[in-house]
Design a protein around this nucleic acid. Structure first.
Lengths: 156, 156
DNA sequence: TATTGTTATACTCTATAACTATA
DNA sequence: TATAGTTATAGAGTATAACAATA
């Protein structure tokens, strides 16, 4: 404790948590959960993508992804299409209805969220992004020591 | 789309998501889920607090909280104590075992996370906090317009 | 052999609402 | 009447491992 960074992480958590709560309203209004919206938003304006790609972008593991996609498929918002290149995989893409939803919900969510940054100028965004980008870079860097005292690569 | 702030929010999400994944390792190693750790961390170094207080700090609703506390109680990490002032409520507090866990896990998690900010100087933290604080302030500000076009206070 | 996606399992979280006991 | 916490319900996400089809 007493570590300087904890304050920043707490702020970070409060901001994202607050933002997600703030944004959850229009999402839930359309009957979507957060992961479901994540999928819709990720598929929006694309020709579709494989489970693998979707999983990597949304950080949802494949076993879970099947369930989430199933529910979206039941709602008629996405569809699976055979991937000619690799018969093991599917392309998941928005249906016409899914695309309509995307075009309705996404701008609403964006507009809703935009208000929060009403008083941010270019400089403020730059400042924020700069600090965050460093952290993200650090997060992508392998070789950090785990609490056990060994590097992740050593582990089972 | 094309909104400037989306880039920042994406960064924000990636950072927190990445941080939580990074930190999840030591937490899970001790058999705790994220909400459970949240409770332990919140109760640490306190004489205990009520459900209401706990719920407000962790943003877990009371119905859910009962379940989370139940599981922690089954593990012998927290205990309920009658609140003399108000017989409707309990004080939830760490047991000796819970306190030991807190003292073991929390510093480990903190130390683990600290590495991410190894190259952040005072100025970097200030910059980050400054930008985040503005966003948080904005999130706490009522009266923002919802996608439906009316202010939240108008709703059911 | 490795990879893509599915299935099964078991648990946890979540929101919600009806309920109790106190206040 | 209002509040603190419980219980019941129903759904959704999660990790994990074993599995089929394909590469």
């Amino acid at each position: 404790m007493g570590e300087r960074y904890l304050k920043s992480v707490r702020l970070l958590a409060e901001c994202l948590q607050g933002f997600e709560r703030f944004v959850a309203e229009p999402v839930r209004r359309h009957g979507l959960t957060h992961p479901q919206f994540d999928i819709i938003a990720t598929l929006g304006n694309t020709p579709g993508m494989t489970y693998k790609e979707l999983g990597e972008r949304t950080l949802i593991t494949k076993g879970t992804l099947t369930g989430v996609i199933d529910r979206l498929e039941q709602k008629g918002l996405v569809e699976r299409a055979r991937n000619c290149d690799d018969k093991r995989s599917f392309l998941v893409r928005l249906t016409a209805e899914g695309d309509t939803l995307f075009r309705n919900v996404f701008p609403a969510v964006v507009a809703h969220g935009k208000q929060l940054f009403a008083d941010y100028g270019d400089g403020d965004f730059e400042q924020l992004d700069h600090a965050l980008r460093r952290l993200r870079t650090r997060l992508d860097t392998p070789g950090l020591v785990t609490p056990g005292g060994h590097v992740p690569a050593d582990e089972g």
